[in-house]
Write a protein that binds this DNA or RNA. Structure first.
Length: 262
DNA sequence: ATGCCGCGGCGCCCGCGA
């Protein structure tokens, strides 16, 4: 089973890129972030025609997440528990039935948190604490679980071309990294790091200042695996070449293969 | 310190992203 995450930065701008990539990579499940549209204008028919079931949790202008799956999506649930007043569309979860039982997947768009001296940063930290609480509850189910998404977290200095640029940024502040480590400490595996220990692998390059051309990247899109998923991990790669396409998203897909048959 | 670039929208500037 091949599972991917991709912040597309507007699904309507990136539909051709997505369809090309689906045909080339043939993922089973894809978690999308920043679809930047309401559910009723999501290009559902085009993606269904490519062979995918579609679940969306959209929002006008900003945010918005989706899950695509070659197999039926069950128990589809939007919104991260823990704050009824949070109306930003940043979380969508679903289950897929397999021969080895249920596989659960979440599409996560964790808040950016900048500028850090505004309410945006406490919102990010609060969101991370809610994610930790939810992840803890989900781990108790002892299922293969994949928390896939744009975490807006640079886990370590090795995950940035120029770490010094990020020391005061919400993506790399100590409090941010501490909460990410707390999440991992519950028992999750960073799929990419489990497969590749070398620095220099990134999932985001800013549009500004020739970030891609200078390889001024950061690794902020992650696949976190529960123990029951991690024990099935076969490999994890970043589809970096997608960033060089015309009108690319500033993020590229990250995907893993699990030894799970549907 | 800010913009760089790209996105959406009660659009021709602005907020937002990272």
């Amino acid at each position: 089973m091949r599972i991917a995450t991709w912040n597309v930065n507007s699904i309507r701008q990136r539909l051709p890129h997505l369809l090309r990539w689906l045909a080339a990579v043939e993922p089973d499940i894809v978690c999308l972030q920043e679809i930047k549209c309401l559910d009723d204008v999501f290009p559902r028919l085009e993606i269904e025609a490519a062979g995918y079931n579609v679940a969306t949790h959209g929002q006008k202008t900003f945010n918005g997440v989706a899950i695509l799956s070659r197999y039926p999506l069950e128990e589809v649930t939007a919104r991260l528990p823990g704050d009824e007043t949070d109306d930003q569309s940043r979380f969508l979860e679903a289950a897929v039935s397999t021969k080895q039982g249920v596989v659960r997947v979440a599409s996560i768009y964790l808040p950016n948190g900048n500028p850090v001296d505004t309410p945006k940063y406490p919102y990010k930290l609060g969101w991370m604490e809610r994610l930790i609480a939810h992840a803890k509850a989900r781990l108790a189910l002892e299922e293969p679980l994949i928390l896939a998404g744009d975490y807006n977290v640079i886990p370590a200095a090795a995950d940035a071309k120029t770490p010094a640029n990020w020391v005061n940024d919400a993506l790399f502040l100590l409090e941010t990294r501490a909460r990410f480590r707390e999440l991992l400490g519950l028992g999750f595996t960073d799929a990419f790091r489990a497969c590749e220990t070398a620095p220099g692998h990134y999932s985001f390059w800013d549009y500004q200042g020739g970030g891609w051309q200078r390889n001024e990247g950061i690794r902020i899109d992650h696949l976190l695996l529960s123990p029951q998923a991690a024990s099935k991990l076969k490999g994890c790669v970043i589809d970096k070449a997608v960033r060089a396409e015309e009108k690319a998203s500033d993020h590229v897909p990250v995907r893993c293969d699990l030894a799970i048959e549907v």
